[in-house]
Design a protein around this nucleic acid. Structure first.
Length: 262
DNA sequence: AATATTGTTCAGCA
DNA sequence: GTGCTGAACAATAT
């Protein structure tokens, strides 16, 4: 389930493998994954172009092309990027396959087809259309924006963190992780937090996201005191020895420590 | 072999 | 408008 840190890892991988190379050939497979453009049109728009830079907004990876277009990818629950050299066995579930001038290929794969590929002229318009809030790791995102978004909201913390129109990029796993590291119960109402606690939530959010990107880029090993390693009912909390419980909160399977998350 | 899973969108309800 | 719930989507693992 690619969330912000996972998509950032894809972005780094994309930068390493796919920037500034001519796209010799593009194969797009017709399916619901490719949105707003036909597979054939996407192929011909990409062929001969190249990617000049990449950006990320929440869970969306945005690749700019030399013709000032934007290939925007969302990875749903099972989407991924894969670069490879030899042809070998044909990969399954590929929706977009790009062959570069050095012979390497980049495959966008998504077995469950909940992901999405867009080809856009204007990123601002796209983000607006998708009703995406700010990306929490962008430089211009600060506490006052976070506080303003929380103002007057009565929903629980988990729902708040996962609402893409408030903050873009946090899903089921990382909302649990942020609240676990902070020691607050996911069902606590946002308006019941003191200003101090709200500030701590803001800081914890940024910290967990940033650190997770770091861990992922260095081999995917997370510290033992991360809930991520214990997302199983009745496991032992790595921070206090309490019990980890699963409960459906905000419509998602949520894990939290019944001892230290109040 | 039925069921849970999982992000997003949308529909429905109080 | 807000907050909540559930359905739909697809494919896989159990």
């Amino acid at each position: 389930m690619p969330e912000l840190p996972d998509v950032e890892t894809f972005r780094k991988y994309f930068n390493k493998t796919s920037l500034n190379r001519e796209i010799k050939k593009a194969v797009a497979v017709k399916s619901r994954v490719i949105k707003g453009i036909s597979a054939g049109a996407l192929q011909s728009r990409l062929t001969g172009d190249s990617f000049t830079s990449s950006d990320r907004h929440g869970k969306y990876l945005i690749a700019s092309t030399s013709k000032n277009k934007f290939l925007i990818m969302h990875f749903g629950m099972t989407g991924s990027l894969q670069n490879f050299n030899n042809s070998g066995e044909p990969m399954k579930h590929v929706h977009l396959l790009l062959e570069f001038d050095n012979g390497c290929r980049l495959a966008y794969r998504d077995p469950r087809k909940f992901g999405a590929i867009y080809f856009e002229d204007n990123v601002e318009d796209f983000l607006k259309r998708k009703k995406l809030g700010p990306d929490p790791l962008k430089n211009n995102y600060n506490f006052s924006g976070f506080k303003k978004a929380a103002d007057g909201k009565k929903e629980n913390l988990k729902a708040f963190l996962m609402d893409q129109s408030i903050i873009a990029g946090i899903g089921n796993v990382y909302s649990d992780e942020i609240l676990f590291q902070l020691g607050i119960h996911p069902e606590k109402q946002i308006n019941k937090l003191s200003k101090l606690k709200l500030k701590e939530l803001f800081i914890s959010m940024k910290k967990v996201l940033k650190e997770s990107i770091k861990y992922e880029s260095s081999g995917g090993k997370f510290p033992d005191d991360y809930l991520l390693n214990y997302r199983k009912n009745d496991s032992e909390c790595p921070q206090c020895g309490g019990k980890i419980k699963m409960k459906t909160i905000a419509g998602r399977s949520s894990y939290f420590c019944i001892n230290h998350q109040k």
